[in-house]
């Protein structure tokens, strides 16, 4: 089976799992299988989708970014400030929001790569810093913005989905194409697999790594814009805990936390699964604590399933073979 077919099978498997989940909730609640559910779903996920797409790339190089929730909040706050207090035009406010996200991401990358500090720690610091700044810029108050930003999250006439959703899907497709079809993507996978070998192959991994964090920052900024537009106001508490949902979505999509392996499309399915679970459980009347327990079980279950699948396709087995250096293929072809 070639790589393309393998990838397709993986997509189909994720799709089937998601459809199964939808069906399950459909059976449990008569109201679930309605247009309204799916429209709500589509308008709820754009922010998480773009952040998780960027997070996929960061996990692939073996890094992590815990600051995305706070940075998203900060970007939303900045957009609100620009529109309400400075009366900047819509496009300028959005550019400012994206810029703040890009800056925060770049800073994460520069500090962790430049000083050789694990990105876990650096982004943990950024998590606090960005949230603090979000409170400072908004005076800890939610700002009502109104119609200026809501357009992004309002379903387009004739279509059931919003521009934000369309942009998010576009980001997913672009992310996957970059990952699997470009030199940059190849570097990401190579760095995540064996950074030392990449360096000794004459490639400087540092700029690539910084760029990935910067890209995630930019996408987080976009997420902040989406979030603000959905609420119609900028909330300094926006995105609390979002980093965990994003990482969960990426991991459910089968991206390895050890780096070197992952797929943006599967991350999108991960987002769908999490959002569907959330909506479905609410529909069947599960309490908030119950929802959290079930979501947690699903996350761990997905990772176990993934590990088991890779075990079956022989990857783990191969590792054992490597450890004891018995080459199986030396006599396969003359």
């Amino acid at each position: 089976m070639n790589l393309k077919a393998k990838k397709l099978v993986e997509y189909m498997a994720m799709l089937v799992i998601w459809l199964g989940l939808v069906l399950l909730f459909g059976l449990m609640s008569h109201n679930f299988l309605s247009e309204r559910t799916f429209v709500t779903l589509a308008n709820r996920i754009p922010a998480l989708t773009v952040v998780a797409a960027g997070m996929t790339l960061v996990l692939i190089i073996g890094g992590i970014d815990l600051s995305v929730g706070s940075v998203l909040g900060l970007c939303g706050a900045v957009v609100g400030l620009a529109l309400v207090n400075f009366h900047l035009p819509f496009w300028a406010a959005i550019l400012l929001g994206l810029g703040v996200g890009l800056g925060a991401g770049t800073l994460n990358g520069l500090v962790s790569v430049g000083f050789g500090i694990p990105s876990f720690i650096v982004s943990l610091g950024m998590l606090e810093i960005a949230r603090g700044l979000a409170y400072l810029t908004t005076n800890s108050q939610t700002k009502y913005i109104g119609g200026a930003v809501e357009g992004l999250s309002t379903p387009v006439a004739g279509l059931a989905v919003s521009p934000a959703f369309l942009i998010a899907v576009l980001v997913v497709v672009a992310g996957q194409v970059v990952l699997s079809r470009t030199v940059f993507g190849r570097y990401l996978i190579a760095i995540g697999t064996n950074e030392q070998a990449v360096r000794l192959a004459g490639i400087n991994p540092k700029p690539v790594k910084i760029a990935v964090f910067a890209l995630l920052g930019l996408l987080t900024g976009l997420g902040g814009v989406f979030y603000t537009s959905r609420l119609g106001s900028s909330d300094p508490n926006a995105g609390v805990g979002l980093e965990l949902s994003a990482i969960a979505a990426v991991v459910i999509g089968g991206t390895s936390l050890m780096g070197g392996r992952g797929s943006v499309v599967n991350t999108f399915f991960g987002v769908l699964i999490i959002a569907t679970l959330e909506a479905g459980l609410a529909q069947v009347g599960a309490s908030e604590p119950t929802k959290r327990v079930i979501t947690g079980v699903v996350i761990v279950g997905a990772v176990i399933l993934d590990a088991w699948r890779h075990h079956l396709t022989g990857k783990k087995f191969m590792l054992l073979k490597q450890l004891f250096s018995r080459p199986p293929s030396s006599k396969s072809t003359p």
Binding site: I189, A190, T193, N194, Q196, L200, A201
Partner: peptide, 19 residues
């Protein structure tokens, strides 16, 4: 440790420096 991307195909390993 210093040369190979073990889980990657031969093609990716061969073209790593000329990608």
């Amino acid at each position: 440790q210093d040369g190979l991307l073990l889980p990657q195909p031969i093609r990716v390993n061969t073209t790593l420096s000329t990608i």
